[in-house]
Design a protein around this nucleic acid. Sequence first.
DNA 1: TCAACTTCGTAAACACCGTTCACTGAACGT
DNA 2: ACGTTCAGTGAACGGTGTTTACGAAGTTGA
Lengths: 247, 247
Amino acid sequence: MTEATRRERLRAETERDIRRQARALLVEHGRDAVTLRAIARELGITAPALYRYYDSREDLLRRLAEDICTDLAARLNADLESITEDDVSAQVFAVCRGFRRWALAHPQEFALVFASTEDTLGRGGPDDHNQVGDQFGRIFLEVAGRLIAGHPLPDEVSADVPEDLHADLAAFQKVLLATVNDHGVGVDEQVLSLGAVYHITQSWVRIYGHVALEVFGRFPFALANPEPLFDSMLAEIMGGMGLSQQP
Amino acid sequence: MTEATRRERLRAETERDIRRQARALLVEHGRDAVTLRAIARELGITAPALYRYYDSREDLLRRLAEDICTDLAARLNADLESITEDDVSAQVFAVCRGFRRWALAHPQEFALVFASTEDTLGRGGPDDHNQVGDQFGRIFLEVAGRLIAGHPLPDEVSADVPEDLHADLAAFQKVLLATVNDHGVGVDEQVLSLGAVYHITQSWVRIYGHVALEVFGRFPFALANPEPLFDSMLAEIMGGMGLSQQP
DNA sequence: TCAACTTCGTAAACACCGTTCACTGAACGT
DNA sequence: ACGTTCAGTGAACGGTGTTTACGAAGTTGA
């Protein structure tokens, strides 16, 4: 049977309930509405009880952000399952569109995870790769890495990456190579060149930029339907890597 | 002398003081620290007095955001003054770098203005062009428009903008033309083509994307110095428009 | 000048909030 | 059976946004 004692089971259960309620409050009424008292009220307990589970409200929000990342990652991975393994281009489209769709459907969660000042959502020390949002970053980047793996960039694209960026990009390259290779695909730094890593980073900038602008309504003019703009950008990005686009 | 009565002068004065204190609190301790009571305390009055000036805390934050936009616009305009009028390329660099520099130096203000969900920072109805952040958008876009005006795009760049975007882009094109022409430069829609407008929009996406990622620390890997990445992106954008880059 | 009116600011109160602390009672290991 | 661990409580403290009734000035017109 379950090794866990009765107490441990109960604890895990209410911990899940707390996060679920917190999540509901965030989604429905925004970040400021995620109050300890409101959560406790909804759960039929008192606010100080929450301190048995979290150090503070800020701590709870931080963990909530991690949950959101995990969920987003799971969702995007699920979307990927339904795509034939060898059509990596379609996978990239799926991840990017899925990210946009999720962000638009969950603006509060997007804002919490992807648009919080570093000090409001604590990010301790230099544990660079355990940062919030990384869960998702991994997915996007891994898919992008796989894409490159099966389809080396045309030489002229990866021509000139600034000297100053070599060190940072090389470090990122190592992480990316490790991630991709962990999933069975064999790639080396010949294929996933520094130029490719640079291109991937720039793509992330554009995708994030569009999604954030759309979620926050900060496009410089009224867009009746921003979707074609996004798709066109996606096609442009893929095209710039020498790939065919698709609808 | 001043037409204003004594009361009106005093009112304007404390209104300025309120905003100034609110601003200071935002900058130093973040959005949540912008408290009516804290502001009042600092000003030597009581919190309810603030309701003579603002409908609510949210209202105050909204006006604060407008102030911030105005200041940013003024600052960037000042930077522009010091650049010879005919070197529009340099002007674009100045505005983009100035925007990044400002955002990094004022993360809390950036977050408030450029990364708030639409409903947390109220944006009533469809008064599309009075929206928060527009003040700045205008500057960026006007400079970009001037750039295009003096330097028509190569034909192949403005080739294919998606059919679905024509209407939105055309509307934006009209606004842009009006803005640019208001400042003396004569342009028509032959030069500032739909393709050019599209290109400008995509450039804004990239610039915003980079700056937001940097401010929020959401780059997928640790960047020792993100500046070369930004400059390289800028050069790429300018290059894509057939312009020479510069250091 | 003096009365009527407008406007800024106050004090008190209400309902919330995060957080701390001493405490109870049930589950737990032995 | 007994001491220990620990989830949860209730009261309290200081903080918050906001409303309300009220006083004290500034303003205005006769």
